[in-house]
Every structure is written in C-alpha cells, then in structure tokens.
Amino acid sequence: MQETWIILGATSSMARAFSRALAERGATVYLAGRDMADLKGAAVDLTARGAARAEAVAFDARDPASFQPIIDKVTREEGTINAAVFVGSMPEQSAIDADPSLIDGTVTDSFAGPARFLQMLVPEMEARAGGTIVGVGSVAGDRGRLGNYVYGAAKAGFATYLAGLRNRLTRSGGHVVTVKPGFVDTAMTWGIEGMFLVADPADVATDILKAVEKKRDVIYTPFFWRYIMLIIRSVPERLFKKLSI
C-alpha cells in the first residue's frame, strides 16, 4: 500500500537515516525543515535510493504559518499519512541560566511547535483510519537533571502529549510510537565530552522502523537505555536531588 511520510526536522542525522530506510521501501517522503538547500539535496538522494517520490518543504517549529501548506500538500497524497518528528533544540543549560528567554525557543522546538503541527494533522489521519506518528523524545525527558532540565522538561511534555495522542489515534486505527534515544552519534553530539555507548543513527533508524511495523508504544534505542533509565528513575528524589549525573 502507498505510504506518505512527513519528516519534521529532516536535516538531522537520525531523520536522514530514517528517511533513507523509508525510501528503500518505496515510500513517498516530505522532508520538512529550514535548510532548504540541504533538504533539496536529500530529496534527490531519497529518490535515487528508491523513494516513490521525495520533496523538500519549508518547516520552522517557531513559525506556525509554515504548518498548513505542508498539511495541504500531504492530504493530496493517496494511501496512509504518517509523520515522524525529529525536531528539538538543546541549548547549554548554562546559556539558559544566563538568558532565561531561551526557554521559550527550546520548548517551542522540542514540544509546542511539533505538537501543534501534529494536532493539525491528526483529523486527516483519523479520516483515513490509519497511519503512524513517530515522536522522538529523549531519555533526558525521563527525569529532571541539573545538566539539561529545560530541554528535559520540554521532551517530558512532548512524551506526555504523545501518550495522549496514542490514546486518541488508536480509536481510529492509527498508532503513535514514542522513541527515546540515548546518546546518538550525530553532528549535535560530535566532540561532546562524557558520551558513552554512542549509537549509530542508522541503527536507531532500524529500531524505529521495527517499532513502527510492530506497533510498539514506547521504545528506547539502543534498547539498554530502558534499563539505564529504569535505574535512574528509581533513585529516591531525596537522594537524587544531591547527585549530579
């Protein structure tokens, strides 16, 4: 069956790997993001890799006016409509401490912007009685920590939103997969100290696609992060508040 995917934040390393996996199975892919030159190149790349069709579309999480034109385009496609959200921004916590107004942008990029977009898309998915939404959160959303609690809070909000959306979409035969990656070897994490067990974006993409096919609800990738986070979540707060991990 024909499937159309909208990839929000398509220039990211993980999104690129995931779009390529979709292309190789013949999907139609809309690459949404800000760097149009890169996205246009990526669209050609996906076509050569086997996508039924690939197109670059302008999307800015902080500019809601960019949302409707994308939704109008995909609703003209036949078959299922699907979306994968890879957007987010993570300023250094120290930068946020110096300039608290950075919180607005972080929350918009990582939660409010994509949530609003999905909210606009969902009625069309319900009308078609199917389709999958992949929402990429972060293990940082599982517990507020000294190092990045604003980003973590935004991702936690997004995760809760996705849980509610799953509850809603299930009724019409659709599905929502929440993805919580650990450390991934991307342009964003390149050269950052203290990274360990770093995963390749292509492996993360494979995990996500598998979760889509099996209709998994929440996945950690690589899988062992489920256990790492289980431990981190189970530390009592009166102890946790004194730790810096």
Binding site: S13, G41, A42, V44, D45, A48, R49, A187
Partner: peptide, 16 residues
C-alpha cells in the same frame, strides 16, 4: 563519511 548523498542516478545509462 557523513557527506553521503546520492546526487543523481540514471537507470538507462547506469551513471551515478
């Protein structure tokens, strides 16, 4: 290694 886009492919001529 991350500059890895396929820029064009022609299935008739086999030029990539």
């Amino acid at each position: 290694t991350r500059m890895d886009k396929v820029l064009a492919f022609d299935a008739e001529t086999g030029v990539v």
